[in-house]
């Protein structure tokens, strides 16, 4: 236990030291050295994590892809906070978003992966880039763009990295002693029963799946009648026997295939409109508020011009003289 924490702490320490040197302003050679050390540390981690790169087992593939994506994400994130030109930072953030989307795909969250790319990379980041362009420094006389001093020199590199280190220590301790050992996966059966129950609630969905399995059932479940309901769900040999189905008093025993379970996108959409519709409205209110706010903040004249101010002060004075007769 102790030795492993020491082990990890050393590696993370080297990595953070390298990060510190990268963040700190300094000579190019030093930065180069830091990069090499940092890459070395990361490489060691990679080597530890994926000793089986190139293995033939197809079940290892996601592993390799995971490491590729997460390495890109982490490396881009580091570059994002160390690059002295904000535009590049924003572009590196796009890289982070893209590789996160890849991770989402690995996690079977296809819809979220694409939504992330569209919303984040497509919309939010573009807005950032617009604003960055607005505030872009004009090129110098020799045609090169010199980043302003505040972009080149970080504010609290040592303290910042130290805080980050403590935070990371907290989180990695949690991961190694909490996530990896204490969290237990829920029984698959229970999760699948929950999925079937969702299917049952989705309007017309269960009927459609039933008819797909057994077209004869179409007459038994007319579309305009009480929706079909499960009265029992069991699992035997990987095939789900669904039934008896209760509708208009009659029950049927039907085996639904795995593919009949609601898809990820269906489940997300269903949760969104069935479980959290009010939250959706609330999100709408927040967006409306943000629009208001952006309009108010970005309007050009929040201040009055100087002569207007002078006039206003005079008007105030007279109003005050009139009002100052009484107290309270």
């Amino acid at each position: 236990m102790a030795s492993s924490i020491f082990y990890l702490a050393c590696v993370l320490g080297i990595a953070t030291a390298a990060l510190y040197l990268l963040v700190r302003p300094g000579a190019r050679a030093l930065k180069l050295g830091a990069t090499v050390v940092g890459l070395g540390a990361l490489g060691w981690l990679v080597q530890q994590f994926v000793g089986m790169l190139g293995g033939d087992d197809p079940s290892d593939r996601p592993g390799v892809i995971f490491f590729i994506f997460s390495l890109i994400a982490v490396a881009s994130a580091v570059r994002m906070i160390t690059h002295s030109r904000p535009i590049y930072s924003a572009l590196y953030f796009v890289m982070v978003v893209l590789s996160s989307a890849g991770l989402f795909l690995l996690l079977e969250a296809e819809f979220m992966a694409f939504a992330l790319i569209i919303v984040y990379a497509g919309a939010i980041l573009i807005t950032y880039l617009f604003v960055l362009m607005l505030a872009q420094q004009a090129p110098g006389e020799d045609g090169t763009v010199q980043s302003p001093e505040y972009d080149r020199i970080p504010r609290e590199p040592a303290a910042g990295v130290a805080v980050g280190f403590v935070m990371l220590a907290l989180l990695s301790e949690m991961i190694f002693s909490g996530v990896s050992t204490e969290l237990t996966e829920p029984p698959v059966a229970a999760a699948e029963v929950a999925a079937w129950r969702e299917l049952e609630q989705m309007p017309g969905q269960l009927r459609r799946e039933l008819i797909r399995v057994d077209p004869d059932l179409e007459e038994s479940f007319p579309a305009d009648q009480t929706p079909a309901k499960f009265s029992r769900i069991d699992e035997q040999g990987g095939i789900f026997t669904v039934g008896p189905l209760g509708s208009s008093g009659q029950t049927y025993e039907v085996s639904l295939p795995h593919s009949a379970m609601p898809q990820n996108i269906q489940r997300v959409g269903w949760a969104l409109v069935h479980q959290y519709p009010a939250s959706l409205e609330l999100a709408g209110v927040i967006l409306l508020m943000a629009m208001f706010g952006a309009v108010v903040l970005a309007q050009r004249q929040i201040e009055l011009s100087d002569d207007e101010k002078l006039e206003a002060a005079r008007a105030h004075q007279s109003a005050r003289d009139a009002a100052n007769g009484g107290d309270a």
Partner: peptide, 28 residues
Amino acid sequence: DRDLEASMSAGRTRFDPIRVNRGEYFSF
């Protein structure tokens, strides 16, 4: 909008819906 309202009521400034913030303030 104290100053703005004062100058509008004094007739020095014309009403401009973009410049008044009071409604938005109370909305927030």
